[in-house]
Design a protein around this nucleic acid. Sequence first.
DNA 1: GATGAATGAGACTTCATTCAT
DNA 2: CATGAATGAAGTCTCATTCAT
Lengths: 202, 202, 202, 202
Amino acid sequence: MKEEKILSSVKDQQLIKVRREQIIKGAIKLFKEKGFHKTTTREIASESGFSIGTLYEYIRTKEDVLFLVCDSIHEQVRERIAQEIDLESPSVPNMMKAIRSYFYLMDEMQDEIVILYQEVKSLKKESRKHVLNSERDMVGIIENVINTCLEGKLSAQKVSLLANNIVVQGHMWGFRRWIMQKQFTLEAYMDEQLKMIEHAIK
Amino acid sequence: MKEEKILSSVKDQQLIKVRREQIIKGAIKLFKEKGFHKTTTREIASESGFSIGTLYEYIRTKEDVLFLVCDSIHEQVRERIAQEIDLESPSVPNMMKAIRSYFYLMDEMQDEIVILYQEVKSLKKESRKHVLNSERDMVGIIENVINTCLEGKLSAQKVSLLANNIVVQGHMWGFRRWIMQKQFTLEAYMDEQLKMIEHAIK
Amino acid sequence: MKEEKILSSVKDQQLIKVRREQIIKGAIKLFKEKGFHKTTTREIASESGFSIGTLYEYIRTKEDVLFLVCDSIHEQVRERIAQEIDLESPSVPNMMKAIRSYFYLMDEMQDEIVILYQEVKSLKKESRKHVLNSERDMVGIIENVINTCLEGKLSAQKVSLLANNIVVQGHMWGFRRWIMQKQFTLEAYMDEQLKMIEHAIK
Amino acid sequence: MKEEKILSSVKDQQLIKVRREQIIKGAIKLFKEKGFHKTTTREIASESGFSIGTLYEYIRTKEDVLFLVCDSIHEQVRERIAQEIDLESPSVPNMMKAIRSYFYLMDEMQDEIVILYQEVKSLKKESRKHVLNSERDMVGIIENVINTCLEGKLSAQKVSLLANNIVVQGHMWGFRRWIMQKQFTLEAYMDEQLKMIEHAIK
DNA sequence: GATGAATGAGACTTCATTCAT
DNA sequence: CATGAATGAAGTCTCATTCAT
């Protein structure tokens, strides 16, 4: 975890956690509405429920907020995936179920995913690297599911590509909602994508 | 075309065109490097080769520049596609060739695509709509290719989804370069994606 | 003494003294390094070994710290002078010895003197007056030495001027160290200044 | 000259000169009253007769203003000295006349000298060095006068010390005005200091 | 008495935009 | 048409001070 690397002048670790959660929640709400750049630190503070001075007791720069947000989004995804994608036993149908769960999750987290897509570039190198690593982990999880269920029937490259495709298909439901969600219901979208995936792994 | 809707205080239409091309070229260079928000109008002016005052003779607001850029990127894609994706005759191999051409194009225009992904949300409603329409057109072109080559073997929904997948796979080569281009050469990436597509349309 | 005029919410006078000494010690260290304005009250508190809240139990405003520091510096000078400049008997050689002692002292207290020169103006009228009075006392002590040793050979004005010159020559060794200490050793500096003084009183 | 090293986004060099003179004049007035730290950039702008935005077209940071001010003060001193201290012929009386001129000048520029004493430390290394070099030049000028008039009767060290003493005596009339100007008229101060100097060089 | 989290006024600086030349 | 100096709203961040625990 990298979050601890963000310095705070407050000592109470528990309090830091609570306050940062407030910050993240407030910031995500604002970033969804207007993006990182058009959101002011004052707005973040007030949306978080405290003063600008207090905000800066828990972060160092505005960019820290963005990092906190990006990191938290990945954290949420990770948690949810861990609890929802449980492969009772390795099999193609279970793999499909897992992917379906992932798609449901991405549907719920559309706005958060859009934030990642649009704002990660505003992080500075170090933080961006960290966030991209989390993203890489996501792909890794999907790769695992595939490998487990297909028992090595596909080459490593194919698995990697397939995993990336799945991940991005989950994202595109959200970041291309203006086109996808005009033409598909979530169920139809998932059904069709899953059919194609089934073709691909045969 | 929507570009004309951007007002200019200059009368000479030819000059407007020339100047705006300078602006677009300069702005794209800067947006690639630092993004829209971190680029100043002064920088755009100077990169374009004239003064800040002159810049404002050809645009009304900074956002106009973004619109000009987004529109121009789509314009470029459209042009290139028109000249490169020519289906001599409708057939699956020719469809594959066309998709391959599209992937090559997306490889060349990576940075521009990333700009679209990251900055479109900064456009205001009206302009955003216009840009998203261009994007829709892109999908339409791919759909056409598919329909022509597969002669209606797939349902409209399937075609639409496939087209969107292809379009996004072209994009992801660029906007996920930090993971894709570490694991694949462009050729390998295209080969594998095309194989999957072939499976999907069988 | 004026220090008592600085209000404290703490009752225990002994404790006040101890804490204030901590404050002064910490603050002097910081003021030497970065000056009064660039030092924060938090830094003063932590350098003093306690919390910001505690700091404010013993002072009212940041300026109080500056006053405490200025006053304490003069206090130190006074003490040291009292114990080091003892004129066994009034004579020109003893006067020279006394001045030499004063120069040694000023060498040791260079940084403190620089603080006085640079920050006194940040005190508000009342406090500044008090500090300048201490400075006046310093001159008085030197005048006394001169008068005692020269037995009224010089006019009051001459004595006053000489005393001020001596005082400032002690200071300039420190506040113009970037030029004086590049060209003179302390010994050479004192020797030459003393020679000139001898000429002047002949 | 170092002033050119301060960047300005304005191109017209003549205008830069004019505006900076306004800035310097306004800033000196304010620094005299409240010191550098307690003066805000907005006050400087408005005292200079333009907006905060315009101020920042001619400087980069607030510290630049301080540097401009310090440099300008030395510049003024240098100019005035050049035109007032003209040694018709080298002789002790002419040397005394020159020193007297210097004292008059320091009387007129008291407040400026006080600014130098109190704020130079707020400059960052590079600028501070430059300013101290100007100060060194001042000493050099006085040394020259002495050497010319005394034709090498004194050792280099003695000359240097004497010059520094004279320079500082000029300053102390201003920065210790609260004690000196209570006891001396300017004339008396100069007379007495000059007498002592005469003794010292005999 | 000690602590330290909370506050918010206010400081510095940037930058999109205008307009006189 | 082109220029670039001027503007000032607005943004980020700091820090002296307070007060509940």
